[in-house]
Design a protein around this nucleic acid. Structure first.
Lengths: 326, 326
DNA sequence: ATAAAGTCTGGAACCCTTTCCGGTATGAGT
DNA sequence: ACTCATACCGGAAAGGGTTCCAGACTTTAT
């Protein structure tokens, strides 16, 4: 048995004769070492856990795909847990994954700064890579970020150049992407020396908030001439509200969104978007983790770009001061 | 140690005194049984594998979400593998998951009827639930199906009632959903005693095929008055082709698709779709598996409905015999 | 009071590898 | 011919639980 083990793990203390003898038997019996026993003895499972807010979200699904591919190529399997947007579940899942003896953790938590989650991450004892979330430095996690700020600054810059001054940015709950996008917006105004005549509507990254927030600003005393949606769900909601107000995108109002989906491309007129490469994000996050699984370098950081693509949904604001309402 | 084990697993042979004594120590040491050791000894890992074609596909992502939720509630974790549409990888992943000692398998393979995959499933030795794929009966798998046929029959029926006779159905590679949709189309014609003046264009469930196939039929000698896309990717492609031909959906040509996405709902005009509940599919598949993990009942079968929702993208065919081309 | 039955408990085997360690065989050096 | 080093091998412990089993201690029945 010891020799079999040595042969199969390429230990140097094995004669050629023994090697062939073992291999022949292995072949004959189609023997395969038991993964559990191996993991137990070696103290590693070649498995990583991925805790996320919501896998049914396209962005997440693409990240998962990228990560899974990268991990699989290096012999790791991925256990996936879905918090369904519930911050309390994040911590629970991290603990469960720890018990399952994962070798490392990929996290894109539903909520940022949940005490239990932060504690769980600190105590987990395995390398952690956090994906597009701000976590206390003390967690000691590697991080992969999107530079949402840059893309948003470009988008807002484009609208400002077109002559817009009142812009509404509809965002979700307050976590890294939200904060960065808001900063991008502010920077676009301030770098042009313009007074901040925009509003930011934070809520949830869902359709309902998209509709509600957009309706609210359109009904307000000083409605925006351009709306930017912070996600495709928000976009859907925003479009619904805009439609209900009888406004035509790219004529009565300008519209931009984050993340390309079939809707943005094929809508009439096509909708400008801030792009990013989610699959790449998955791959890079996995790489950050793998780095720390062999060797034990200090936590790494990767930042991926986002970029704006103008489209006919963004036009110069109508000259009319006040538009018709529904 | 034995007593600790008995207490923690609720074995009946434990006195009340021992129970409290153990629990007190467990508390004090915050002891937790090692998952690997437990799995090794009990010969079960409370883990299931999910092999799928493509997690970045929205339909799959929703199924995964449903399944993960259901499994997690019963204490199971899910390992996810993604075949990236490559049939050869399916078999590989099934074998890998087997080695990982998963207790059961959820499969929505990229390819149907791959020899290696079928063999791997037969040999895996754990319960299998196949999701919306046809597998040889000999595999002994439980199955969860969508009734694509019914939804498609409704959709085509609707178009036929509107007066369409030349309908093009754009589908992907030949596997269960494809075959069922085709049957639905055929049935809609035949149950009205109409001669089958439709064409079915099989290819891949991707945008490219959507564009190519649609372009081909629109350029053909006898172009369809209605097109049905078999997925949202195909829809995107089809819309692109229709646009390029300078046709207006809901006026020059009728269009329907499968699966609701923001595009179908918000397109101008809104696009009719065949609906289905993917999350429910995930849940039910997981339930089928869980059923077989406790007890060992014979393989079960579940069929979930699909249903058609007419929308303004479907109108009576234009009276003009031949429409303008680009 | 005693046999029989029942309740608990701890020891040991087992799940399946990996790895440490002592020991044999072989070859080189003198 | 005899060390000494080297190469290789098998036994045993360890990894951390679960479960069988025999035995000790109670309790019940007679």
């Amino acid at each position: 048995m010891s020799s079999v083990s040595r042969v199969l793990t390429n230990h140097p203390d094995v004669s050629e004769k023994m090697r062939t003898r073992v291999m022949r038997s292995v072949e004959a019996l189609s023997y395969e070492p038991d993964w559990l026993a191996q993991s137990l003895r070696r103290r590693e499972t070649q498995t990583v856990g991925f805790t996320m807010a919501d896998i049914s979200n396209r962005v997440m699904a693409e990240i998962v795909m990228g990560a899974e591919t990268e991990l699989r190529e290096r012999g790791y399997s991925m256990i996936l847990t879905n918090s369904e947007g519930d911050g309390n579940r994040d911590a629970q899942h991290i603990i469960t994954l720890g018990r399952r003896r994962v070798d490392g953790l990929l996290v894109a938590t539903a909520v940022e700064g949940n005490r239990a989650t932060v504690r769980a991450l600190k105590e987990t004892g395995v390398p952690v890579v956090v994906i597009d979330r701000n976590l206390p430095r003390t967690v000691g996690a590697s991080a992969a970020y999107f530079d949402h700020r840059a893309g948003m600054r470009e988008a807002v810059g484009h609208l400002l150049e077109l002559g817009h001054r009142r812009i509404s940015l509809v965002l979700g709950q307050r976590f890294r992407p939200t904060i960065e996008r808001r900063s991008g917006l502010e920077e676009a105004y301030s770098e042009r020396g313009l007074s901040p005549t925009f509003d930011v509507l934070e809520g949830h990254y869902d359709e309902q908030h998209g509709t509600d927030a957009t309706t609210r600003v359109l009904d307000g005393p000083d409605p925006p001439t351009a709306v930017i949606a912070g996600s495709n769900q928000l976009l859907t909601g925003a479009l619904r509200a805009i439609k209900r107000h009888g406004l035509k995108v790219g004529r009565d109002i300008s519209l931009a969104s984050c993340d390309e989906v079939s809707l943005t491309e094929l809508y009439e007129p096509p909708i400008a978007v801030v792009h990013r490469d989610n699959t790449e994000m998955g791959r890079r996050s996995a790489q950050l983790l793998l780095e720390r699984l062999r060797g034990d370098p200090p936590p790494g950081v990767v930042t991926l770009p986002t970029w704006f693509e103008p489209r006919p949904s963004c036009v110069a604001p109508a000259k009319v001061a006040r538009r018709s309402r529904k």
